[in-house]
Amino acid sequence: MPPTETVFLPTTVSIKKHMLKSFRTFDIWDLPGQINFTSSGYDTEGIFGPAGAIVWVLDAQDNYVESCARLFETVMSLQQTRPNIKFAVFIHKTDSISDDYREDTVRDIQQRITDDLDDAGLTNPPITFHSTSVYDISISEALSKVLQLLIPQLPTFEALINNIAVNCCFHKLYLIDTLTKLFIASDTSPGDTASYSLLCDWFDTLMDLADLYSTEGQSNESHAISERNNGDTSNDRNAVNGSALVKPGATMSTLAPPYITENDAHSFVKGSRGIDLYLREITVQLVLVGWSKQSGFAERKPLIDYNVSLFSKAIKDCLQVIAPDPPETEEAQSSDNS
């Protein structure tokens, strides 16, 4: 839905549950804001029991004092029963506030809430703050950070990505979810919104192009098989593609149906201003995207491809084990320091 049309959305009056299917499934519960769910009479256990993180949306344009107080109550009551729940405060609708004032507002809210919690004896509350807007990429960035709170493998992912970013001269690397474009992990260099925004736009471009041509490729498959039966490799490839066609998952984004793990989709842009973009599919749900301004990056692409393929294998191993074993994956990674 384009951001301009969100004004037509009705008020949420009951709990709405959404499911986010990625490499893991996340349940998102949309709670109506006018009801206090921590008060007695509600099934707090049922609502907050399975929750891993709570996103609290504050309207930065409105009078936020009341909302801050409500947040305070919620945090306090939940901290007693379930201290593992993490809070993320989205200071929302910041697009309409001018730049200098925005900083002030964010700082004010942040100060207010931490002070209150501090006074109540909660010195290190599990709260993060994000200033967001639906009109730019900031909302995706903030949601990504929230998702990352819920991923147990995150440190491993970050270690792997850092390793490859340093060794392959990537300026910034993201592991993004193909459906939502949220990033599951990134290298730990200071994040900047601009590169995330560019890479998301690029990913959109690729999706649009894939949309135009991927179906066509499928209809050609029979063509291709009948045409070239000489050469083992081409036969192999066709066989592999054939198996992709019967794979379920048609509801996924356009990349999903034809893309398979044995023959990862990849893309590359050699920019004319020294900026190169790199993308490689890891699984159906995850792609690695990054950019580099290292000169000679394009020439060294085969080497990078090789490193990324090892990285990809490490990530897949990681996803398969429920509790990741960091030493083992580190070892797998160390072999690609070529």
């Binding site: 894939a210 041509y213 991927s214 593609n241 034809p258 989709a265 893309s267 590359f268 842009v269 050699k270």
Partner: peptide
């Protein structure tokens, strides 16, 4: 950009 390529399975 000077070159832009996508390699997908289809």
């Amino acid at each position: 950009f000077e070159e832009f390529y996508i390699s997908a399975p289809t």
